[in-house]
């Protein structure tokens, strides 16, 4: 963990930035090969700092850093460009993604597939794609990377009840499961095919990821989700 590291140029996103000491920023970043890291951007809060317009959230960046220990020092920050800032509700969804990653992905636990899923989600939000499928795709990829993936039944038929500890449990015909997450065979087929056109699929998968995330968060509340809900009220 504490070994010295020098990285010259690594694709990354800033997940969160907060003031640090007198003129610096403490960044939480998500990188392609090195997972989530904490970096100090020295002098980034000085008036006229060139770093400030580069170290934006939801913008693909190329970062370099060096140092040992839990917090490294940013040595390079280039704006990779090509992605407009997500607007409106998409921006709020972006905060939700950031909060999920910050809460559930430990620092220095590299997951290339998390970065790739995050990058795809941010680009889709910025492009104004329908929000729900973007969020569900990211949640499923992220949860799978963290080890909360689903074990798929070999043949899909009927309906399934989902339990965090047991996975998908077939439901008897006519059996009801009030208050539980129930997935139909059609939804599982849609998931496998990456097809999001059916409202029922979206609704069932939303309930599924929600249950998995609540389980992973162990009772903590997501601020961004709460605020998004208040906005829609």
């Amino acid at each position: 963990m504490a070994r010295r590291q020098r990285v010259e140029a690594e694709p990354a996103y800033v997940l969160h930035a907060r003031p640090w000491r007198e003129t610096s920023l403490l960044l939480e970043v998500l990188t392609l090969e090195h997972g989530r890291l904490a970096l100090v951007a020295k002098g980034a809060r000085r008036p006229g700092s060139q770093l400030r317009s580069v170290l934006l959230t939801f913008q693909p960046l190329v970062l370099g850093w060096s140092g040992a220990g839990e917090v490294r020092t940013l040595t390079r920050a280039d704006w990779a460009g090509g992605v407009p800032l997500p607007q409106g509700r998409a921006l709020w969804c972006g905060y939700y993604l950031n909060e999920l990653v910050l809460r559930l992905l430990a620092r220095e636990d590299p997951h290339r597939e998390v970065f790739l899923a995050y990058d795809a989600a941010v680009r889709a939000l910025a492009a104004g794609e329908p929000l729900a499928p973007v969020l569900r795709r990211f949640e499923l990829a992220f949860l799978a990377a963290l080890g909360y993936g689903l074990d798929w039944p070999h043949t899909v038929a009927g309906r399934y009840r989902f339990e965090p500890h047991r996975g998908l449990v077939p439901l008897m015909e006519g059996e009801s499961a009030p208050g539980e997450v129930v997935l139909s065979a059609q939804t599982l087929e849609d998931l496998r095919a990456g097809c999001w056109s059916r409202p029922a699929t979206l609704a069932e998968v939303r309930a599924l990821t929600r249950r998995l995330i609540d389980h992973a968060l162990d009772g903590q509340e997501l601020q961004a989700r709460r605020m998004l809900r208040e906005l829609l009220e």
Binding site: R18, Y95, N98, E99, Q223, M227, E230
Partner: peptide, 11 residues
């Protein structure tokens, strides 16, 4: 300003 990840919401 609103800052969801710092817990600063509309309230």
């Amino acid at each position: 300003r609103l800052s969801p990840l710092d817990g600063i919401g509309p309230k």
